[in-house]
Amino acid sequence: MTIYLFKRFGLAAVVVMAVLLLLFSMLHMIPGNPAILALGTRATPEAIAEYSARMHLDEPVLKQFVYFLGSAVQGDLGEDVFSNRPVTAIIAERMGFSLALICTGMGWAVLLGVPLGCLAAVRPGSWLDRVTGIFSVGTIAVPSFLVSIWALLLFSIQLRWLPAIGAGEPGNFADQLSHLVLPAFAIGLGWVGYLARMVRASMLEVMGEPYIRSASAFGLKPRRIVLGYALRVAILPTITLIGMGFGGLISSAVFAEIIFARPGVGKMIFDAVSDRNFPIVQGGVLVATGFYILVVLLSDLLIAWLDPRVRSSL
């Protein structure tokens, strides 16, 4: 187990490095000198040279990368080009909004999608199964940014039930919650359908397994068989899927944060890219990658906890 965790963290470090290296080379291929962007077009050549030297912009890309890694390990992700505030501080104040959005989005998708898939599998061919099937395909097919815009138009502008923009007043929980509803709805909707489909397929497969017939042959109650036996096994592949789904949700969250003007990490990265505010982009991507790797690791550990066969092979 310790060796397993050790390996996983080693692998995570390699993935983070690879992502950052890709990002680094990409950022440096984008036209535009960050020093000019930071100092303005009327900056003197001396000032630009001085700034470039301070930010290591005059050195080879690989070297810049090493500098960045070196300070990142010490918890220093650099400074905002414009405000000179530490990147870590900026990310820290925005991360909460993104985490709340992503977790709420996936949360309601799981709470609705898993039972729907389960019910559909227990009675295949019933009206519930058919409705779920149509609903699944429909919601998977519509991109989340379209859902965001429609939800915004319908619930905020037409019906005026929910606020359109921002993340709510700091400290006012109810207000923040009401600002969370629409974006979370928008990014989670596709996942409700997706999870329902996956759980249904997985449940149907498991319900055909001999051990389910054994449980029936021992006279166990149908509810116990479905929840305690079949779902217990069928949920395992779904957990992997949910873990990986967080990756997709991170990008959905970028759109949702832009459309709803939520001050999250996604919107921060988007703004920073347009401003060539490289330290912010790097810091934001690092955090997003780290978050994703952590979630996948947690989902794998959860499976190991639920499945003794996996547990004993670790």
Binding site: Y211, S214, F218, R232, V233, P308, R309
Partner: peptide, 13 residues
């Protein structure tokens, strides 16, 4: 009942 294949007829988890 006693089943044919104990590998598949007993729930693994």
């Amino acid at each position: 009942v006693v089943f044919q294949d104990p590998m598949t007829s007993q729930i693994p988890v």
